[in-house]
Design a protein around this nucleic acid. Structure first.
Lengths: 244, 244
DNA sequence: CGCGCTTCTTGAACGCGTTCAAAAAAGTTC
DNA sequence: GAACTTTTTTGAACGCGTTCAAGAAGCGCG
């Protein structure tokens, strides 16, 4: 896996890596244009000008192609969200921006997303958002909400503040789940849902920040911790997994 | 689809219905013993002593077999929950019983359930719990929580009370989702989660019932209504669906 | 019985994701 | 260059879910 210094002879980034990138780009393009089911491995390979087996040499399964797509989608979202967030100062506004740009970004892939989350719900799938394979994307997503909170003026107790990025990420996954099922024009239902839930969340966060609510808040946060712990130990199962 | 009156000549419930039942029972048994992936349509057909095509004559796809399994599971849960509920009077105790018996019932099918909810998360799947095909099971499930609430002594405002059965059903789906991912011994993590969430829910319900909370509660309930509306109109899509 | 009609049953066939032994290409060492 | 190893590439093959044209079985009616 050592890279051959700086490949001087040509602009290649390693022969294999080039093929890998070719296949990936071809696949992503095909997903966008034809959707998931139509983008068969054979079709992708053919369009990329490689053999079927070769595609499998670089991507263990079709799901790993989706995983790459997932990452790409997230990167695009970050690029859209960060600049937009600079204008917003209140927690509510910042949350709204983060969520709206998220849906904006995903919009072109609505039909494809259905498949994405179908497989994502499978505990054994590499796309499972709580699983190991999704760790990079998940971490980055949570970091985005970290930033959403950091730039906001709201005063939030430490205990809640610590868990909030994670909680907001889970919330965002719920919104995406709704969006997948949303067949209304321009997904207006999802945008409306975002408006309403963000407003409610804003109120809830302030309510939960009230000293009066401390005991209930503590209990709820303990629960969240437990959930998170559990979500993180999905590995040691009896199943054969995907280690071919 | 008209039923041929009362079939007088024999104890058959229609020739076809017999074959259908045979295939279904064989499939359910195989699911239990071998899990989902191992129970291929070919294997099911062979074990049932019919041809492969014949299985497809009665079940449009493999997923429709799971749908039947789903219904069966629910029936078993009802049978276990109703008697047990007679001993419990408080809301907390009744909720606990309902949820614990739910997991008890599903326990033998843990590995299988993973697949079940993988496909259930697909909007196009007949197993989608919000979709039309799941209507009977969903309605019955909500009715169970209706009964859970009816037998409880807690005083709950009308608006909340009206939505609560649905909300508790959604909650129960969340628990099941957790359970699917839970690989701890005897699923103790899930049981612990139930204990904690039920206690929290109990407190939340009482908190939300406080006149003080009326405005926030109203807003939240409006949101729930909207969510429910949206969830119920998933049909008119552009996709080809499964009408083949 | 023969005829027509519906219901039921069959097995071959298709395209899919995936696997694999083997060949080709590239890299390494003398 | 030759010999060897490693990386890359290939295409046939497998088992799967699903489809379909064709036939068999059941049934009412003359």
């Amino acid at each position: 896996m050592r890279k051959t210094h700086t490949s001087q002879k040509s602009n290649k980034t390693g022969k294999g890596e080039q093929t890998r990138a070719l296949i990936l780009e071809t696949a992503l393009e095909m997903f966008r244009e034809r959707g998931y089911d139509e983008s068969t491995m054979r079709a992708i390979a053919q369009k990329a000008g490689v053999s079927l087996g070769n595609a499998y040499y670089y991507f263990r399964s079709k799901e790993f192609l989706i995983q790459a797509f997932y990452q790409r989608l997230h990167d695009t979202h970050i690029e859209a969200a960060l600049p937009a967030l600079e204008h917003d100062k209140t927690l509510k506004a910042r949350l709204l921006t983060a969520m709206r740009t998220k849906i904006d970004t995903m919009k072109p892939y609505h039909q494809f997303a259905g498949v994405l989350f179908k497989t994502a719900a499978n505990p054994k799938s590499p796309l499972n958002p709580f699983g190991d394979e999704s760790d990079p994307v998940r971490t980055q997503s949570i970091q985005l909400f970290e930033k959403v909170l950091d730039g906001a003026t709201a005063r939030i107790p430490k205990d809640l503040r610590a868990e909030l990025p994670y909680l907001l990420w889970v919330y965002s996954m719920g919104i995406v789940l709704f969006w997948i099922h949303d067949s209304s024009r321009s997904h207006r239902r999802t945008y409306r849902l975002i408006d309403h839930t963000v407003e409610l969340l804003d109120k809830l966060i302030h309510l939960a920040s009230n000293p009066f609510m401390r005991p209930l808040r503590k209990q709820a946060l303990r629960l969240v911790d437990e959930l998170r712990d559990a979500a993180e130990s999905l590995d040691d199962d009896d199943g054969p997994g995907d280690a071919a």
